[in-house]
């Protein structure tokens, strides 16, 4: 085979990855658009080890080569994630596009990533050297770059099993289907014993990477709903100051106002 490797097992894939200059290829939807005819691809899209959805005590493990369509059909995948990936492209794109590819492409427009960021997801990265588990947020360095070693593969995405029942998701695209996000917004909210334990908000497609501001979220953590309501104007003002967004097919100003609207609307749906 010219310019490509089709490994029979994950082990073989890792060996090729360690020894050759290859680009991991899962679904191809992003890679083939940026097509480089001389690229050497490592075709990992059909490795059984990367195509499973499993659960353990704390996490739902979504294999890197699981497609969006497959995730939508799986009852274990949280509704928030389904809300996001159901809006990706159109059937053929969801049939090909994978969770690992969405992360690995390192685009802030990747629709599954804001959900992962808001949900405190982790990534399991593997190589012949072993494996490591990293926070999704720390994986990205900026536009188009991330922390994947040249010998590593993304093995799976770890989504927390609990705490994702109260969520909010909106996507702004240019039309009803087949639309690249111009703004995406995911938030997750949780309370324990009348105190807010989580108020995560992630903004996609509005900057070089997906944005999340833990220090601003801290304004609400530990508070009651009533206290959070009092805090709301200051909280929104803080986001207003912090959100420095990029110009794209839509203006930075528009992005910012919509982000703030969605943030406020998400609080409203959480009762704040």
């Amino acid at each position: 085979m010219v310019n490509g490797y089709v490994p029979a097992s994950l082990q073989e894939a890792l060996e090729i990855r360690a020894g050759q200059d290859v680009i991991p290829y899962a679904g191809g939807t992003d890679l083939m658009v940026k097509r480089r005819p001389d690229a050497q691809y490592l075709f990992i899209g059909r490795l059984p080890e990367l195509r499973q959805i499993t659960e353990d005590e704390n996490y739902i493990h979504i294999g890197a080569a699981v497609t969006f369509t497959e995730a939508l059909a799986d009852p274990r995948v949280p509704a928030l994630m389904k809300a996001a990936v159901s809006r990706i492209g159109a059937p053929a794109i969801r049939n090909a596009g994978t969770f690992g590819g969405n992360v690995g492409n390192a685009s802030a427009k990747a629709d599954s990533v804001p959900v992962e960021v808001a949900a405190d997801a982790k990534l399991r990265l593997i190589s012949l050297r072993g494996e490591r588990v990293v926070e999704i947020e720390s994986f990205y360095h900026g536009h188009g770059t991330h922390d994947l070693g040249p010998d590593e593969l993304i093995a799976e995405i770890l989504l927390p099993r609990t705490g994702l029942d109260h969520w909010y998701y909106e996507k702004v695209g240019g039309r009803s289907a087949l639309a690249i996000s111009r703004i995406s917004f995911a938030s997750v909210f949780d309370m324990q014993e009348d105190r807010i334990t989580k108020a995560a908000a992630a903004f996609g497609a509005v900057s070089d990477t997906v944005l999340r501001f833990r220090d601003l979220e801290a304004m609400l953590i530990g508070r009651s709903v009533a206290e959070a309501k009092d805090m709301k104007p200051a909280y929104l003002r803080a986001y207003d100051e912090r959100l420095q967004l990029t110009e794209g097919r839509v203006s930075a100003q528009y992005r910012k106002r919509v982000c703030l609207n969605l943030l406020e609307d998400s609080l409203r749906t959480f009762g704040i």
Binding site: A90, G174, R175, S176, A177, L178, A179, I180, R249
Partner: peptide
């Protein structure tokens, strides 16, 4: 700018 089907958006069956 954006002379492509991902930038120039024509209606789909859902619009």
């Amino acid at each position: 700018r954006g002379a492509s089907f991902s930038d120039y958006l024509i209606p789909t069956a859902m619009d």
